[in-house]
Write a protein that binds this DNA or RNA. Structure first.
Length: 478
RNA sequence: GCUGGGGUGACAGAGCGGCCAAUGUGACCGCCUGCAGAGCGGUUUCCCGGGGGUUCGAAUCCCUCCCCCAGCUCCA
């Protein structure tokens, strides 16, 4: 069975074949001037799953995710203010100070969400030398020109010799941002063609983030870092490039053109382009002005990371989907169901049957089939939940079979990013809770239900769930 | 306007030519419980935006109409 992926470059689902033994993936990461929000996390989760699934299928994977720590511009067409600078000024921080804080937070949250799996998280500012070299090469190869300390990519020249497949059905004319006379700045006017874009931008005097270059002090254009870091860590030609749907245009086509221009390539530099759809919040586009902007930080105060990952797994990466607390609650319940099964199976003594053997085989196949179809995690998840039901129905299977089934659930859930290991009772609290439970059992035996119920309620308030069963009471931490 | 993705049971969401349309949630009923929880079983009817076509057969393919959503300054 082979994995099929929807390739934006061709607009088709294609069987995935890697160029060589190691699958190389570039994932567009974050511009690090603000906190990670639910939408960012949704996208990163998709690429984390991509990596995990490829590895599960036996590939070796090398994935990088860039961290943009030199700001892009707030305005269109290489104009306006640098977002990192802007945010730093507002917070009265040195730009790199802001970046440092945000990067630490980013890693922490990625780790909490179980998606800190990229092999390298390269940062733009750490690759200034390479970026300058890249610009030089593009000029040498005849696709770039300098004007007044800025360097532009010569799009018309490029299209004479190379294709410019604008991803997602856009046309090259769409590059003409600001060409309608709306924006009339010096920098736009100095371009040879309105569809050219900046490789290197001359820094105005007040600009804080600046680096010396052969063309004077400046800073890199938006698309440059991705071309440079991709080539550096993954090579001139590599397998997969991922990003948000918003990057379909113009970022990715420009990045692709740069890759070709800098290495003077004849062939396609990147084979598969994957794009993840955005999520809306309660039916509306997420935006700060609407106040429906949820950060990972605040959501993690209310929900454990696995709940978020279950929520993400429940949506296909290319589908539009809606985030709401209701949907998070649903995700929480799904997770609960799976966890419950694991508990029940682990607690079971086992019996003589081996009914589950077949289900285990089928589960594996179903999972792979679902995931092979362009990473259909919602289907995979639903299969996992059905499988939980089957286990619940066969808790009297042989113990080793139950163990195998549980191991499989953990393994497969792990592939779609849901961490199921380590749901243990709090060791320190254990003897005290046991004591309370014991007392409660004695009360129940004497029909002292009122107090017994109080104990149960009070424990529940402390996130300790008590359940009475035929063979006595058991408890776990919520 | 342009480009792309969609419209499936109360809701969320799979299915993309034929195995009486997954799965979860909600609601209701039953079993089990002192009660609850968890678990199990059942019910939630005739269904797949409208119309036309292709086919022995369509939610699935084609045409057409209607309606949503996203992208089109930077954004995951």
């Amino acid at each position: 069975m082979s994995l099929k992926l929807y390739n934006t470059l061709t607009g088709k689902k294609e069987p995935f074949e890697s160029i060589d033994d190691v699958v190389k993936i570039y994932s567009c990461g974050q511009t690090i001037y603000e906190d990670m929000h639910i939408g960012n996390a949704k996208t990163y989760s998709a690429w984390d799953v991509l990596k995990r699934y490829l590895e599960w299928k036996g590939h070796e994977v090398f994935q990088i995710m860039n961290i943009t720590d030199v700001g892009h511009l707030t305005d269109d067409a290489d104009q306006g203010e640098d977002k990192i600078e802007k945010s730093a000024k507002e917070k009265k921080l040195e730009p790199m100070e802001l970046v440092t804080k945000q990067v630490i937070k980013f890693y922490k949250e990625m780790d909490l969400l179980n998606m800190c799996t990229a092999n390298v998280f390269p940062r733009a500012t750490g690759h200034m030398v390479e970026m300058i070299e890249c610009v030089k090469k593009i000029i040498e190869n005849g696709y770039g020109y300098e004007v007044n300390g800025s360097v532009y990519f010569d799009v018309p020249k490029f299209t004479e010799e190379h294709s410019y497949p604008v991803l997602g059905g856009r046309t090259i004319d769409d590059l003409q941002v600001g060409a309608g006379g709306r924006v009339s700045s010096e920098q736009i006017q100095e371009k040879k063609s309105p569809i050219d874009f900046a490789l290197w931008i001359k820094a105005p005097p007040e600009h804080l983030m600046r680096w010396p270059s052969p063309w004077g002090e400046g800073y890199p254009g938006w698309h440059l870092e991705c071309s440079v870091m991709g080539s550096k860590y993954l090579g001139e030609i590599f397998d997969i490039h991922t990003g948000g749907i918003d990057h379909i245009f113009p970022h990715h086509p420009n990045e692709r053109a740069q890759n070709i221009a800098m290495h003077d390539l004849e062939e396609e530099p990147i084979r598969y382009w994957l794009h993840s759809s955005h999520i809306t919040v309660e039916g509306e586009k997420m935006s700060k002005s609407k106040g429906n902007f949820y950060t990972v930080e605040e959501l993690l105060k209310e929900y454990e990371p696995s709940v978020l990952r279950t929520f993400f797994a429940g949506i296909h990466y290319r589908s539009h989907s809606d985030f709401s607390f209701k949907s998070l609650e649903e995700a929480k319940k799904k997770l609960h169901r799976i966890k419950n099964t694991i508990r029940l199976a682990e607690e079971s003594e086992g019996g003589e049957k081996d009914t589950l053997i077949e289900s285990i085989d089928r589960m594996r196949k179903d999972f792979e089939e679902a995931m092979d179809e362009d990473l259909n995690t919602p289907l995979a998840l639903s299969k996992l939940i059905s499988f939980s039901g089957e286990i619940n129905n066969n808790l009297d299977d042989r113990k080793e079979i139950l163990e195998e089934a549980v191991a499989l659930i953990k393994e497969l859930a792990g592939v779609i990013g849901i961490e199921l290991e380590g749901i243990e009772t709090d060791v320190k609290a254990e003897p005290y809770v046991d004591l309370l439970i014991e007392i409660r059992q004695k009360l129940r035996a004497k029909k002292g239900y009122e107090l017994a119920d109080t104990i149960r309620e009070r424990l529940e308030n402390l996130d300790v769930i008590v359940e009475d069963t035929d063979s006595g009471a058991r408890w776990y931490i919520k």
